[in-house]
Amino acid sequence: MTIGDPAWRAAVAEALDAAVPGSVELGALDYVEQLLGALDHDPPRIWAAPGSWDGAGGDRPAGAPSWLELGPWERQAWERRIEGWREAYERVAAGRAEEDDLRTVHVHACEGTYGDPAYGGNRDGGGWARIGFPEPLHPPAREVAG
């Protein structure tokens, strides 16, 4: 079973929903996939740049990158971290999840439900809407999410 194939997706979705009910409908699986593939993009999809609201005077240039650059050492750390998560999700998908893997699934389900939609989850802010959390005044850029 490889990351992103239908069986993998089904198994991971089930684990995410068990951790945070309703999270998959809100985009948690997309969140996990975006996270595991974050370094395949340039800039990597680790830190979203500020959105076009630009509360400080409106001069954030149109078309400015939507993601911040990682430094080389930060990239090294994120490669290691993501590699660890890919292995964890492979175990989850294969039905061999360890306690730490389920903790990771839970944390990602929370992030993918209540983190900013820029990261692929919390579809249309639905995670916030269901708990009455107000839309941020100064959200990150969301245009390239997904």
Binding site: I46, W47, A49, D54, L137, A141
Partner: peptide, 25 residues
């Protein structure tokens, strides 16, 4: 001028070590 890298973003600030230090490093 300020660089404007900050947004209301719980994931970047609290869970993804935007401002370092990354504990893996």
């Amino acid at each position: 001028d300020p660089l404007r890298h900050f947004a209301n973003d719980e994931l970047a600030a609290h869970r993804r070590h935007l401002l370092g230090p990354d504990p893996l490093l």
